[in-house]
Amino acid sequence: MIHDVSLYEILTVTSILFFIGIYGFITRKNLISILISIELLLNASVVNFVVINKYLYPDVLQGVVFSIFIIAVAAAETALAVGIIINLYRQISSVEVKDVETMKY
């Protein structure tokens, strides 16, 4: 519980963080930037988990434990995504989204 800071203020911040992530995911042209945007999305939700746990159910730790799970999964996922991007770069010498649109009908 942070002194003089209410739950709503923190939730507002995380919401802003979340929508910044979405905006970045949709508008960035670089695959690495998109990856970073995804990190923003994940972190926004992690903060939500922790804060809601802390403010609403202070005597349990489930939200905190879950956030650690999310961090671990996010790390694995990022490693996978970076691996794909590096392989892609070796193939077409580019990490631009517009160059990766052959997977359609």
Binding site: I22, F25, I26, I34, V97, V100, E101, T102, K104, Y105
Partner: peptide, 11 residues
Amino acid sequence: MQSGKVQDYAM
């Protein structure tokens, strides 16, 4: 409609 662009799908 299936453009192959990831960001279209996200939209």
